[in-house]
């Protein structure tokens, strides 16, 4: 039986696992952006907070993913459902690139532009929302891109705690020593990562402001 036949025969399961995978990654990324961008703004506003924030995100990044799932298992609300647990872990992984790129983007705004903004009587909030954030969008999106690709890969391990997704095929294939089964998980996951990367790069280009 060829790989193509296998894909056709199991297309429904593969599609379902892919959708589940997208769902896990999508929710995690939304949460990571919702948490990471504000944390990045706080870190850039208060230099003394930037070390603990970036340090914390760095530590989360260094924990091996299987171990992180293990650590989160006894946590009351999370341990009860595999998808909650996985989404929490993936969010933690996605935070670092987003926080770091948000601070880098804001820090990269031309000092003269910021000084002109202050000198003309813009409030701190107006400077943030009308000047700093719009000028940081490409950098922040680049961070989101990195985080998304990373998360799509790590999400395959979600199957280890029973949250489903494309990792399901990989783990089953490993257990049964079945290459086709492993590829049935790995190929869609890789395709998903490439597609996400491509689409986010298009978005990044469209939102890039005119620059000198």
């Amino acid at each position: 039986m060829s790989l193509i036949d296998f894909f056709i025969r199991h297309q429904r399961e593969i599609l379902q696992a892919t959708l589940q995978h997208i769902w896990l990654v999508g929710i995690s990324m939304l949460l990571a952006v919702a948490i990471g961008v504000p944390l990045g703004i706080i870190a850039s506003r208060h230099p003394w907070l930037s070390k603990p924030i970036l340090g914390g995100a760095n530590i989360a990044e260094t924990i091996p993913s299987l171990a992180l799932f293990g650590f989160l298992l006894p946590v009351p609300w999370l341990g009860g459902r595999a998808d909650r647990l996985v989404i929490t872990a993936l969010t933690l992984y996605a935070l670092l690139p987003i926080i770091r790129n948000t601070t880098a983007g804001i820090g990269g705004v031309d000092a003269a532009v910021r000084e002109a903004a202050r000198g003309m009587g813009m409030t701190e909030n107006q400077i943030l929302f009308q000047v700093e954030l719009p000028l940081s969008v490409p950098t922040i999106l680049a961070g989101v891109r990195v985080a998304t690709v990373l998360t799509i890969g790590i999400a395959t391990i979600a199957a280890a705690v029973g949250a489903g997704g494309l990792g399901e095929f990989i783990f089953r294939g490993l257990a049964m020593v079945n290459d086709q089964l492993i590829l049935a998980g790995a190929i869609p996951a890789a395709a998903l990562a490439l597609l996400a990367d491509f689409m986010l790069s298009l978005l990044e280009r469209r939102l890039r402001p005119a620059r000198s």
């Binding site: 003269a112 910021r114 000084e115 002109a116 903004a117 003309m120 000047v131 005119a210 620059r211």
Partner: peptide, 12 residues
């Protein structure tokens, strides 16, 4: 009114 050497026009 405030004018600086680097001008500081908003590029976006």
């Amino acid at each position: 009114g405030y004018v600086i050497q680097e001008i500081g026009l908003f590029p976006h």
